[in-house]
Computed example of a mutant assay.
Amino acid sequence: MATSYADSAQAREWDRRYDAWGREKRAKPHEFHDYEAAALKRTQALADRDIRLLAERKASAKRVAAAVDAIGEFWGLKEASA
């Protein structure tokens, strides 16, 4: 509890000194988080991930089908493709 009081008192003192110097306090826009831009980035990243996963599943299905065909050909369960 004493720490929060000390921090608050120190902050008030710095504010008083800063105002006493005649400097204006301005908001610094770069210190604020842009939630809309972050949400848009997150949505785009999820869409990109979904597209990539779909392409990976299609490629995996082709590889599995080729492997099954090769096994079938090896054991004589399927005629060799030309």
Results as ranks from 00 to 15, higher is better:
residue 4 S to I: 13
residue 41 K to A: 13
residue 47 A to S: 13
residue 2 A to L: 10
residue 81 S to I: 01
residue 19 D to Q: 14
residue 58 K to N: 04
residue 40 L to N: 06
residue 57 R to T: 06
residue 26 R to S: 11
residue 29 P to W: 03
residue 42 R to M: 09
residue 54 L to Y: 03
residue 28 K to Y: 10
residue 5 Y to K: 13
residue 37 A to L: 15
residue 30 H to Y: 04
residue 64 V to D: 01
residue 16 R to D: 15
residue 52 R to H: 06
residue 59 A to Q: 07
residue 8 S to M: 12
residue 62 K to Q: 14
residue 30 H to W: 06
residue 78 K to W: 02
residue 20 A to C: 00
residue 39 A to M: 11
residue 37 A to P: 02
residue 31 E to M: 04
residue 8 S to T: 11
residue 3 T to V: 14
residue 76 G to T: 01
residue 30 H to M: 04
residue 47 A to E: 08
residue 70 A to M: 08
residue 73 E to K: 01
residue 31 E to D: 11
residue 12 R to Y: 12
residue 29 P to V: 04
residue 13 E to M: 12
residue 58 K to E: 03
residue 82 A to C: 03
residue 22 G to Y: 00
residue 47 A to W: 04
residue 1 M to Q: 11
residue 8 S to G: 12
residue 65 A to G: 02
residue 22 G to T: 07
residue 61 A to V: 06
residue 81 S to R: 12
residue 46 L to H: 12
residue 15 D to L: 15
residue 25 K to G: 09
residue 51 I to D: 05
residue 36 E to M: 11
residue 8 S to P: 00
residue 69 D to C: 05
residue 47 A to Y: 07
residue 35 Y to K: 15
residue 36 E to G: 03
residue 51 I to G: 01
residue 79 E to W: 00
residue 68 V to P: 00
residue 61 A to F: 02
residue 80 A to C: 01
residue 49 R to I: 06
residue 26 R to T: 06
residue 29 P to D: 06
residue 40 L to G: 03
residue 62 K to Y: 04
residue 23 R to Y: 10
residue 7 D to R: 09
residue 46 L to F: 07
residue 58 K to G: 00
residue 65 A to T: 11
residue 62 K to I: 07
residue 28 K to N: 12
residue 74 F to Y: 11
residue 55 A to L: 11
residue 58 K to F: 02
residue 42 R to C: 02
residue 68 V to Q: 06
residue 61 A to L: 05
residue 21 W to F: 13
residue 14 W to K: 13
residue 63 R to I: 08
residue 44 Q to V: 09
residue 16 R to H: 02
residue 40 L to Y: 05
residue 39 A to F: 05
residue 55 A to C: 02
residue 71 I to V: 07
residue 25 K to F: 09
residue 78 K to D: 00
residue 18 Y to H: 06
residue 75 W to H: 06
residue 21 W to D: 04
residue 78 K to C: 01
residue 40 L to K: 15
residue 57 R to D: 01
residue 28 K to V: 09
residue 55 A to S: 10
residue 36 E to P: 00
residue 46 L to V: 09
residue 26 R to Y: 05
residue 56 E to Q: 14
residue 23 R to L: 12
residue 78 K to L: 04
residue 49 R to S: 12
residue 29 P to T: 02
residue 81 S to N: 09
residue 81 S to P: 00
residue 42 R to W: 01
residue 45 A to D: 13
residue 58 K to S: 05
residue 33 H to L: 06
residue 9 A to W: 10
residue 21 W to L: 15
residue 30 H to A: 10
residue 68 V to D: 11
residue 14 W to T: 14
residue 62 K to S: 15
residue 77 L to N: 12
residue 75 W to T: 03
residue 82 A to Q: 03
residue 15 D to S: 10
residue 45 A to T: 05
residue 46 L to D: 07
residue 30 H to D: 14
residue 67 A to R: 15
residue 7 D to M: 08
residue 1 M to Y: 08
residue 77 L to R: 11
residue 81 S to K: 13
residue 74 F to P: 02
residue 60 S to V: 04
residue 62 K to V: 08
residue 65 A to Q: 15
residue 7 D to F: 03
residue 16 R to C: 04
residue 41 K to S: 13
residue 12 R to N: 13
residue 65 A to W: 00
residue 11 A to F: 03
residue 44 Q to E: 15
residue 15 D to C: 08
residue 64 V to R: 15
residue 25 K to Y: 14
residue 10 Q to F: 12
residue 74 F to C: 09
residue 6 A to C: 04
residue 30 H to E: 15
residue 9 A to D: 15
residue 25 K to H: 12
residue 43 T to R: 14
residue 49 R to W: 01
residue 65 A to M: 05
residue 44 Q to D: 13
residue 72 G to C: 09
